[in-house]
Design a binder for these strands. Structure first.
Ligand SMILES: [Mn+2]
Ligand SMILES: [Mn+2]
Ligand SMILES: [Mn+2]
Ligand SMILES: [Mn+2]
Lengths: 218, 218
DNA sequence: TTTATTATTTAGGTTAGTCTAAATATTATT
DNA sequence: AATAATATTTAGACTAACCTAAATAATAAA
């Protein structure tokens, strides 16, 4: 149907427009896909002709409704495969992203629907990111960055805003896992480091950089 | 590492040279891959430069040792994914080939090794075809076509030589499954049809065309 | 052994996706 | 408002993988 390249453009534009609003600059897309800005201009013109995106010269691009649905489909594939890799094959959460980048492009409605059922219709992937349903609908979740919380606040660690393997394996190392209940004991004035109490009563202190990568839900 | 296209060329050449011996004609490759013979000549020249195959103008091609290992690797991937699709996701054996054609190109040693372990290190795929081990070694099996057997012969149905969905689903329809024990009761002189007795004592008659698609082991 | 048929290669061309360098437009600075 | 800096697009080229048509080689038939 669509080439891997087209799908990757759609995904990149989707992520940018979710994060930074409406129109996305071609240079932003270029940065994500690690290609030259001139290549993006070229490519988006072709994709605009296919009605996958709307392109306005010198203003940027945004997804058409069709393009958006395709993008969400790829994200659904990606996250379901990540669940498979972690839950069934025993990969760690910091190892699965690159593999899912390949698997997300496998074309088959029935495969994805059977995989979804096999995994027990998971609502989130191994990083806490929501998995859209077959109709492209996300279950909205309202979480906040730990770095925005004050002493006394509490909640459950349900996602990360930093998806780098380095960050994820660091969380493993300090024994912080998705689903853990945490309470903010202290926010250090000096360096904005956070001291947390886990359900096990154990206390850990994390830097601001870490606090800024953790998503907490009520 | 190698493009999907290169991998498909290697697989096609591998299969042809297994079936028809040493040198493979470019036109044979063209037929399998559904491309023009001129395109094959073009492509094999490039692949010869990469030392994946040996090409002799006007004589044909054969795989280099390196090319052979790559080809066997793809076949291993293909068959393991087929097992996954049937055993874990519940696909029928006549539905999985095209999907495996996509999945076989996913690049990751660890993925395949984990998948292999997850599936219990299967020795054969859903069609009875042997799965090479991680070193590219096939477990040799010596089976014969039912169509070469005489009345009184017996054995176990362990594979198919015809992999078409039409044939496979026909076998489902007449209730013949991989692993079934069969005994040749009669070979009809007139049309070479075979009457078989199954372990359940039930007798079925199959045409020569069907007998020619079934592999029987002692 | 010529001649016809068939297989294979060469030549020239196309499309997708990329690049670099140059041109143009936008935004920021003086 | 003029100039400098930055972003974006255009122009021209490249590679991978394909195609068609023409040329050549191998094989089969007369
Ligand atoms: Mn991911
Ligand atoms: Mn994820
Ligand atoms: Mn197959
Ligand atoms: Mn098979």
């Amino acid at each position: 149907m669509h080439s891997f390249t087209e799908e990757n453009y759609l995904k990149a534009i989707y992520k940018l427009q979710e994060a930074n609003g409406e129109m996305v600059a071609t240079s932003e897309v270029a940065k994500i896909l690690a290609v030259n800005a001139a290549s993006v201009t070229d490519m988006v013109k072709k994709m605009a002709q296919k009605k996958l995106i709307i392109y306005q010269k010198m203003k940027g691009v945004k997804l058409s409704e069709k393009g958006k649905q395709v993008a969400i489909g790829i994200i659904r594939n990606h996250r379901l495969w990540e669940v498979f890799l972690v839950d069934k094959l025993g990969f760690r959460w910091d190892e699965v992203h690159e593999l899912a980048e390949q698997l997300e492009h496998i074309q088959s409605e029935t495969l994805i629907s059977k995989l979804d059922a096999y995994l027990g219709h998971p609502k989130t992937d191994p990083h806490g990111d929501p998995i859209p349903d077959a109709n492209g609908v996300f279950a909205k979740s309202k979480s906040v960055l730990l770095s925005s919380m004050d002493a006394g606040g509490h909640g459950k660690f349900t996602g990360v805003s930093d998806h780098t393997p380095a960050f994820l394996s660091y969380l493993d190392k300090i024994g912080l896992s998705l689903g853990d209940t945490i309470k903010v004991m202290q926010v250090e004035e000096f360096d904005k480091s956070y001291t947390l109490q886990l359900k096990t009563k154990k206390e850990i202190t994390v830097s601001f950089k870490v606090a800024n990568g953790l998503l907490i839900s009520a």
